[in-house]
Design a protein around this nucleic acid. Structure first.
Lengths: 345, 345
DNA sequence: TGTTAGCACTCGGGTGATTAGAGTGCTAAG
DNA sequence: CTTAGCACTCTAATCACCCGAGTGCTAACA
């Protein structure tokens, strides 16, 4: 026994219907609502076959069928076309981006908010992060007392800052001297290459400056792998409560697990990192690399900046997700965001 | 009929017990568990009196009593002493602060996390914000292309930045000139006094510089009341899911309302603003100035920086909250945070 | 050979009745 | 004024029951 056109049609109908209703689908429903020109008995037989093939499953004997993960997989891979998003939408989205200050956090926030609003599921957006970014500028600004603000600008427009308290009050000249030296040395370097070595060389040159010694540690920390990871690639989440609208989350225990997860940013980060995002990816049910949400699906896309993939965005929802719509939306948003970032540049 | 010592003792016992169990408390429970030297019948009579006085209420005739808002109010005002936090705790908390980079966001985050962990309720912390802060330094850093990073430092260690795209690529000299002028003018000014007027004067001086014209708008926005509000005084929330552990939130609808609220930062901001926080405040049930959470209580304290109140922190939980513990914790955390900020300075 | 009508069977979930138990208020005695 | 005792109330849990949706199978039909 193998898949034929009629089986495909029935599978598609069942999944479409299940996405709509979240209830097990019986053969009668299909024969009435969909024009397949066969009786419910025939559909019943086909559904039994589809179950044997692993695409459908039955919660209990006297209930209808629901799709299995394998069923969804087939549906996503072979049965649907991604919806077309109307051109006019792009303009609207651009407006939203323009309305906000164009800091990285703002962009990420706007993106996640739009994603969650458009899909009514939960959106995750990782802010741009790439070891391939270039160092551009470092500025040391003396503050009150013994404090210094260390401001680092990488690639275009991405700024990070940090305050350091020194042992003694530094003079403005001293700070300027040091920042000039550091800038000369790091100018145009890829972040990934600003290793300890570079700093060790710098340390030699600046050995006599006690101030540098003190700055040294925090700069090292800043450019270390962990420092990088901590500051960049932060995950912004929106629409967490949307899952509460889904009938599969009427169980409080499940909700708990879910929301607990959302409070652990590192988990989410790892989750997204585990998904090899190039283009549009759909991860269904048991394929999800995170125990707690094995009954969910993820739709992930990457976005780029200066022609490099720098971040990902994702929609997290029940496996019974409106895939055509969500896939279209995520894909579209990733494209628009990449465009917006390119133009900004 | 009025309050006497025995009534107070019984009221206190009922509330303590209810805080523990979340179940209506009957007279027998009190007579058995608490050593009041009276029988359950006597307690029954007293409880009837307490109900008449409005301190207790009955969900239905054949159930025990639960405290009313008025009961909690009396309890908080007259029946409890705030627990003493052991000295050793302070050191532990300091360590936590030291372990993180000392940016404002980090401090706020650490604070809210600790609050929610210690109390097992939801913590809200408003980041420092005050029109009484002083302007300290502005730095314009040229980025790639036509972009400029505007970096503003206020008071000690509070840094904000923003990227602006200009019409033409600015020269480094030009930017330096402008920042020098702006710095001279704004140096040491209270943020609240950097009004349009100051900028208008600056505009006159710099009229010939087209670059300033372009920067003008974004600076104006930055120092405007809304800009200020948007950037400072952000609310950080932690332990949202803790409420799910509370039996009063076994109703999904209620959970929904709650979590939806948490996704609206401006609501939370308004909520905290409406509470005149000086010292430790407890807002109980119907006293809460926000419809959606009228069956909750808030314990709020303010914290200070440079001897001025700059922010608030709060614990949000069910009215059936462990007031002695929560009040002690919030009070303590606010004090420690103020101390840490003072020492930093 | 594939399709369909018909039918007996299964099973979950909703309905209603019953019951156990906790707690009360009242009364009367100490 | 306190307390033991008792009748009464009300909720929540349990159970039996039934309804209906849906199935798989069989037999007839094209």
């Amino acid at each position: 026994m193998e898949m034929n056109e009629r089986k495909k049609g029935i599978l598609k109908a069942v999944i479409n219907e299940f996405i709509l209703t979240a209830e097990p689908i019986g053969s009668r429903t299909i024969s009435k609502k969909y024009d397949l020109n066969v009786s419910s008995a025939t559909i019943r037989n086909e559904m039994a076959d589809l179950e044997e093939l692993g695409y459908l499953q039955q919660p209990h004997t006297s209930a209808g069928r629901i799709p299995s993960d394998k069923g969804y997989r087939f549906y996503v891979d072979s049965l649907i076309n991604i919806e077309k998003i109307p051109e006019s939408f792009e303009e609207m989205i651009r407006q939203k981006y323009l309305a906000r200050k164009k800091e990285v956090q703002d962009i990420v926030q706007v993106t996640s908010r739009m994603l969650s609003h458009l899909t009514r599921y939960t959106a995750l957006v990782a802010s741009p992060s790439s070891p391939e970014y270039f160092f551009q500028h470092l500025q040391l600004v003396p503050l009150e007392g013994k404090k210094v603000a260390v401001i680092v600008v990488i690639s275009s427009g991405l700024v990070q800052h940090q305050t350091v308290t020194l042992q003694n009050r530094p003079s403005r000249e001293e700070l300027e001297h040091i920042s000039r030296l550091i800038n000369d040395r790091l100018q145009g370097l890829e972040l990934g290459r600003i290793s300890n070595d570079v700093f060790r060389e710098l340390e030699k040159e600046l050995r006599d400056r006690t101030i540098f010694r003190e700055l040294y540690r925090s700069l090292l920390e800043f450019f270390s792998e962990e420092g990088m990871n901590q500051e960049w690639g932060k995950i912004h989440l929106d629409g967490a409560t949307n899952i509460l609208e889904q009938p599969e989350f009427s169980d409080l225990e499940k909700v708990k697990v879910f929301l607990k997860l959302f409070e652990q940013e590192d988990m989410l980060k790892e989750l997204l990192n585990k998904i090899p995002a190039e283009g549009l990816q759909v991860v269904i049910g048991k394929e999800v690399p995170l125990e707690e949400i094995r009954d969910c699906s993820l739709v992930v896309a990457d976005y780029s900046f200066q022609d490099k993939t720098v971040g990902k965005m994702a929609i997290l929802g029940p496996t019974r997700m409106n895939y055509p719509k969500v896939m279209a939306t995520v894909n579209f948003m990733a494209e628009v965001l990449s465009k917006v970032l390119r133009e900004e540049d």
